[in-house]
Design a protein around this nucleic acid. Structure first.
Lengths: 214, 214
DNA sequence: ATTTGTGAATGGATTCACAGCG
DNA sequence: CGCTGTGAATCCATTCACAAAT
């Protein structure tokens, strides 16, 4: 009823999955959903979904479930997706270019707003209507546009340096694709996307299966 | 001393980070490292590292720390990285192409071994010496090469269908880049890489900061 | 009859703290 | 003296189970 507790970060990380699933349901013209049904779609228990949502209020109706559109709107508001977030992208290699061209961001509250690289051959060229800028201009450009979010897609060796520039540019949240843990002040959020590490954690299980077979 | 407990998955997911950090240390010619020093590099507590490693054996020396090269070898062996893992990649859009061209895999036990797409304009073209195949050939091609690991980089609408094909091809672990939770039998491992969800979990905190400022 | 919201109970993961070894 | 390895203690997350609502 009265919510004093601040929601733990695990809960915050699940909310976007709930939101996405609700968007798909909406596309399928499903109007109402129970925690049970929602959970089956995303492999989360019904109790978990209900408990997670309870950190933010009461959104369901007993005996009925949740109104898909209403719940989606609530979760999007909670996540701050009722506004558009400009994002700076640093490092326009193969990966950076794929990120810059990805349509899935724009549709979901994320707008790639500035591109940076250090390669003189890339600086000045355009991708999707945005000009790649010299990454020494990060601070000025990001401040001008009030960008608080950035994506790092540079090689590991340059990641910390770029992170430092972002922090002095006033960036408060970083999505790091570089295979390197970066150090930032405690008021800056960092999340790491690390496909190699993820694959390596799965080879562990594959290797053990091979052992079992002998 | 005697290890009966099977290591929890959280521990397995951290091992690749330890391995990577040790590789960097080795490159810097650091021979020996304490759990404290290692932890500072990757923002993990010293106790956590020691406890994690204790699931697999005793690798350190009291008063000294760990021999970097030895510990790295041990962890790589645990993760099954003493062998090379062929991987099938399905979906050669911007992202799939970036993955196919990424050098960071090959160097770390992962070899992209087959590319698939459904677009006739792409099928037959080459990337990095590999020919893109029709994705209806997944089962035959993957079985022939004994591929147990796959990466899905297709749009959300096709992800489940592709996952089903991979499962019948005998694939046992899937890295899913599609913004969609896929359903697989319980003997198949799935990990999801979801940059949009990650960004959305950070906009939550950014939005709250904005509120605080008013 | 069905499903929510939530305290209580359980189950896990992390941290503590220290004996024991080099 | 420094640092590991590890039981015990703590902290946190998930699940249970049921009263309340419709």
């Amino acid at each position: 009823m009265d919510r004093i507790e601040t929601p733990p970060d695990v809960v915050i990380r699940r909310l976007p999955l709930y939101a996405r699933s609700l968007r798909y349901l909406l596309q399928e013209d499903v109007r109402s959903v129970s925690s049970q049904e929602l959970g089956e779609r995303i492999n989360v228990t019904a109790a978990q979904i209900r408990k997670d949502l309870s950190y933010f209020g009461e959104f369901g109706k007993q005996g009925i479930g949740y109104d898909v559109e209403k719940l989606l709107n609530q979760i999007e508001r909670i996540l701050g997706l009722n506004q558009e977030w400009p994002v700076g992208l640093i490092g326009i290699g193969h990966l950076g270019e794929a990120i810059a061209r990805y349509e899935g961001f724009r549709r979901q509250g994320i707008r790639i707003a500035a591109l940076f690289d250090s390669d003189p051959n890339k600086i000045g060229t355009d991708i999707n209507g945005l000009t790649i800028q010299d990454d020494t201009h990060i601070e000025r450009a990001m401040r001008e546009q009030g960008v608080k979010l950035a994506i790092i897609a540079v090689p590991a060796t340059r990641a910390q340096e770029v992170a430092d520039m972002l922090v002095s540019a006033g960036v408060r949240a970083i999505l790091n694709y570089a295979p390197m843990v970066i150090q930032v002040p405690e008021n800056v959020w960092v999340r790491h996307i690390d496909p190699v590490a993820v694959l390596h954690s799965m080879t562990y299980y594959l290797a053990r299966e091979e052992d079992k077979e002998s």
